[in-house]
């Protein structure tokens, strides 16, 4: 069963099936049973801990003594915590780079799809960094980006002055983002390639016959036709950006210089572990979760639409 076939079948499907089950009412009880394992697992291990964590955030819990209720004290404290505020700004900067996270793999996917020489090889190879753990990616870039590292050696050879990529507040966050982007773009690339494979090739041929320029073909025909998949990739990428940068931060910058690369995720780790303040960390977590909530709302809309519910 190839993807193209599915896509075609999907297109040919009539939207008359409606929202009701086709199996009559007796089937419902069994349907609940089918969905039960998933629901129980999700509620027990994700929703319940979330609510539990919400509870902690209103206490002075330090991981040892019995938590005492302190009202919104933690929330007031984080509102005045310059480190937390900096981490939010960093998060916004990170989110602002989303177009690059989507654009770069998209362009590469289109090129490979257009039959760039060596495309099949590129497709296989680009995914490699995504397989490696952030520990090794971090170790390598540590050596490339350090002040006496390879990048600066190259800069100097070309007559430029060296830049302290990870030690300068202006460049540290962007260096970190670039490394994470490099390490994960293969995943989005695969998603886009998959999407492109469902674009009917006669559409492209028709465009070519019209004498349309390569760029125009992409912009007006290819990209609109895979819009849903771009939205999907944006969702997956955003979640990844906000929840899986810890490994690289830890190895490459440890959150510094100052707070330049401290993201909320890293701060939660710091408060929870080293500072031993789970109550305070929970409050930060909840704020992060609420902020993601806004994002989540958009995402859920897109995803529900994709799932046709």
């Amino acid at each position: 069963m190839t993807s193209t076939m599915i896509a075609k079948e999907t297109e040919s499907r009539q939207p008359t099936a409606g929202r009701r089950s086709i199996f009559g009412n007796n089937a419902h009880r069994l349907a609940y049973l089918f969905v039960l394992p998933a629901l129980v697992l999700v509620i027990l291990f994700r929703i319940v801990p979330l609510i539990w964590g919400l509870g902690y955030s209103f206490t002075d819990y330090n991981g040892m003594s019995t938590p005492t209720f302190v009202g919104v004290q933690n929330y007031v404290a984080i509102a005045h915590d310059p480190v937390f505020l900096d981490s939010l700004i960093n998060m916004l900067i990170l989110l602002a780079t989303l177009p690059i996270w989507i654009g770069l793999p998209l362009v590469l996917a289109i090129l490979i799809h257009q039959g760039v020489p060596g495309g099949k090889l590129f497709r296989a190879v680009y995914f490699f960094p995504a397989v490696l753990s952030s520990v090794i990616v971090g170790a390598i870039f540590n050596m490339l980006l350090r002040y006496d590292g390879s990048f600066n050696a190259a800069l100097k050879a070309m007559g430029f002055s060296a830049i302290d990529w990870l030690g300068n507040s202006n460049t540290a966050l962007f260096s970190l983002i670039a490394v994470q982007l490099w390490a994960t773009f293969g995943m989005s690339l695969l998603i886009f390639l998959a999407g492109l494979s469902t674009v009917p090739s006669d559409m492209l041929e028709a465009a070519k016959l019209d004498g349309a320029k390569l760029m125009q073909t992409w912009w007006y025909i290819v990209i609109p036709s895979i819009r849903p998949i771009i939205e999907f990739a944006a969702v997956v990428t955003t979640i990844g950006m906000l929840t899986s940068m810890f490994g690289l931060i830890y190895v490459l910058t440890a959150g510094g210089p100052g707070t330049a690369t401290t993201l909320p995720e890293f701060l939660i780790w710091l408060e929870q572990g080293k500072m031993n303040r789970p109550g305070y960390a929970s409050a930060i977590s909840m704020v992060l979760f609420l902020m993601m909530g806004g994002l989540a709302w958009i995402q859920i809309r897109i995803m529900s639409k994709n799932a046709d519910l």
């Binding site: 994700r46 319940v48 801990p49 979330l50 539990w52 964590g53 902690y56 991981g63 906000l242 929840t243 810890f246 995720e265 939660i268 780790w269 929870q272 789970p278 960390a281 929970s282 977590s285 909840m286 992060l288 979760f289 993601m292």
Partner: peptide, 8 residues
């Protein structure tokens, strides 16, 4: 995020 629910 995983970090949010670690202790609970």
């Amino acid at each position: 995020p995983v970090q949010v629910v670690l202790v609970p």
